[in-house]
Computed example of a mutant assay.
Amino acid sequence: MILLCDPRIAAVSGLDDGEPLVETTKFVSPVEVAPHSTGGAVDLTLRSADGVELDMGTAVDATPEASGDACFTAAPSIGATVRQHRQILVDALPRVGLVNYPTEWWHWSYGDRYWALLTGAARTRYGPV
């Protein structure tokens, strides 16, 4: 990841200085803020009472490119049923303190840097090991 953000890589790739970082963060969180490494993030989906996974519009870990941006929690392109399923997460999880990373409907955090930013907490609850 660090090499991809290096200005020398930008020069070779033909991208502007900031573009490699923008492009790579579509696939991998920057090391300095990667929430899964802190134990403060979880990827979730919904299942019916009989264990069948509900239609959430994309697979967990779908990329913006592969999903036509349908992986965004509030993507305008998703249908009503998918929107209702995602809304269940949006309604329930903040009630127990989790926050959503809006480019991934499945990604929810508690206690990490993103959570602290969105909740206004003075500090994180977790840190990298």
Rank of each mutant, 00 (worst) to 15 (best):
97 G>V: 06
115 W>G: 01
70 A>F: 02
31 V>L: 14
15 L>P: 00
59 A>I: 10
88 I>G: 04
76 P>S: 03
99 V>Y: 02
17 D>V: 15
98 L>E: 07
46 L>A: 04
126 Y>K: 12
8 R>G: 02
12 V>T: 09
98 L>T: 07
56 M>W: 08
121 A>L: 06
3 L>D: 11
59 A>D: 13
52 V>D: 05
30 P>I: 05
45 T>R: 10
96 V>T: 13
126 Y>G: 04
63 T>D: 08
123 R>Y: 04
108 W>C: 03
92 A>L: 13
124 T>P: 07
119 T>D: 01
123 R>C: 15
99 V>H: 04
69 D>N: 06
71 C>F: 02
16 D>F: 12
103 T>P: 14
82 V>Q: 07
68 G>W: 01
120 G>K: 00
14 G>R: 11
112 D>T: 07
21 L>F: 13
99 V>T: 15
106 W>C: 12
77 S>E: 05
3 L>Q: 14
38 T>P: 08
7 P>K: 09
85 H>P: 02
11 A>F: 13
75 A>Y: 02
55 D>S: 00
53 E>D: 03
28 V>I: 14
128 P>S: 14
3 L>E: 14
60 V>Q: 11
3 L>F: 11
26 K>A: 14
98 L>W: 14
12 V>I: 15
125 R>Y: 12
39 G>S: 09
54 L>A: 02
71 C>Y: 00
60 V>M: 09
97 G>S: 13
95 R>T: 15
50 D>F: 02
4 L>V: 06
118 L>F: 05
44 L>K: 01
46 L>P: 03
20 P>G: 01
21 L>Q: 08
120 G>Y: 01
94 P>Q: 02
100 N>I: 07
114 Y>G: 08
122 A>Q: 11
60 V>C: 15
65 E>H: 09
86 R>N: 07
86 R>T: 10
80 A>Q: 09
70 A>Y: 03
60 V>Y: 01
36 H>Y: 12
122 A>W: 07
83 R>N: 10
53 E>C: 02
85 H>C: 03
95 R>D: 09
10 A>L: 01
89 L>P: 04
26 K>D: 15
84 Q>L: 08
35 P>E: 15
86 R>V: 09
58 T>Q: 00
69 D>V: 01
97 G>I: 05
120 G>E: 00
51 G>H: 01
45 T>A: 10
14 G>H: 09
101 Y>F: 15
127 G>C: 14
101 Y>Q: 11
11 A>M: 13
60 V>P: 04
57 G>N: 01
9 I>Q: 03
27 F>Q: 12
109 S>L: 12
95 R>M: 12
102 P>E: 12
16 D>I: 12
97 G>Q: 09
26 K>P: 07
18 G>L: 05
32 E>C: 10
114 Y>N: 09
8 R>N: 06
30 P>F: 04
13 S>T: 15
53 E>W: 06
87 Q>L: 07
1 M>L: 03
